[in-house]
Design a protein around this nucleic acid. Structure first.
Length: 228
DNA sequence: TGCCAGGCCGGGT
DNA sequence: ACCCGGCATGGC
């Protein structure tokens, strides 16, 4: 007996989303360091505000590890003001760069030679980097096959009755990761990259702005609860 | 105008 | 083990 709760159609959902919108080209950045900074800046913050910040950092020549590491947290905070909670985020970014220098001599290439479980554990030890931020770095800067679970992912899954709200981050990620378990690492990384980006697109451009959900790519799987 | 955005931490039960 | 306030800007 297969019910949607224990066996949600996550593969079919991916197919439907990808067929509808195609590849999303995430993460929008020109370097791995830019991905890492962006992952912290976007915590509870809209991407348009982060874009402003990234542009400002670039304009002032602060989009390099060396520069960010050598400046003060106050200086950095002023530069990233448009992302909100800037004093908190300046400290978090400094924590990250300090760790990069202490652990990897400021060499991001060296850092990404680590295996995924070790690297994830290390990232989670940095104050200001939680599971989603760590996984964004692993997936979008490191091409590791980890699934990023954000609030949009939870909402979409809940809305269709595929999870209840007590599911942990790791349990949800494992559901996705297991479904592509037999694929190669690069194939999984590619799918998880596009999948997360497509969920964000679905939530932002459909579910949030159109509660009626007409033309929804997931109309084959009707919503069972109202969108929160 | 008030509410929210691609979270996370620390202190309190 | 949960629950909650704080952080803070810019867009609708």
């Amino acid at each position: 007996m297969i019910d949607a709760k224990t066996n949600p159609p996550l593969r079919e959902v991916y197919t439907a989303l990808f067929k509808r919108w195609g590849p999303q080209g995430w993460w929008p950045a020109q370097s791995r360091f830019e991905v890492m900074i962006g992952a912290i800046l976007t915590q509870n913050t809209s991407w348009t505000n982060v874009e402003r910040t990234i542009a400002n950092l670039k304009l002032n020549g602060y989009l390099s590890l060396e520069k960010v590491h050598s400046c003060s947290a106050i200086t950095l905070a002023k530069l990233i003001r448009s992302s909100g909670t800037h004093h908190v985020k300046a400290k978090r970014i400094k924590n990250l760069t300090e760790w990069l220098y202490n652990e990897y001599a400021g060499n991001i290439g060296l850092m990404f030679k680590r295996d995924t479980p070790t690297l994830r554990r290390q990232l989670l030890h940095i104050n200001g980097i939680g599971k989603e931020t760590a996984d964004c770095i692993l997936l979008y800067a490191g091409k590791r096959p980890v699934f990023v679970v954000d609030t949009y992912t939870r909402r979409v899954l809940q809305r269709h009755g595929w999870i209840d709200d007590k599911y942990s981050y790791d349990e949800i990620a494992a559901r996705f990761e297991q479904l592509w378990g037999k694929q190669t690492i690069s194939k999984r990384a590619h799918v998880f990259n596009e999948y997360h980006a497509l969920v964000v697109k679905l939530a932002k451009e459909h579910c949030l702005s159109r509660p009626d959900c007409r033309e929804c790519p997931l109309e084959k799987w009707p919503c069972v609860i109202n969108y929160p």
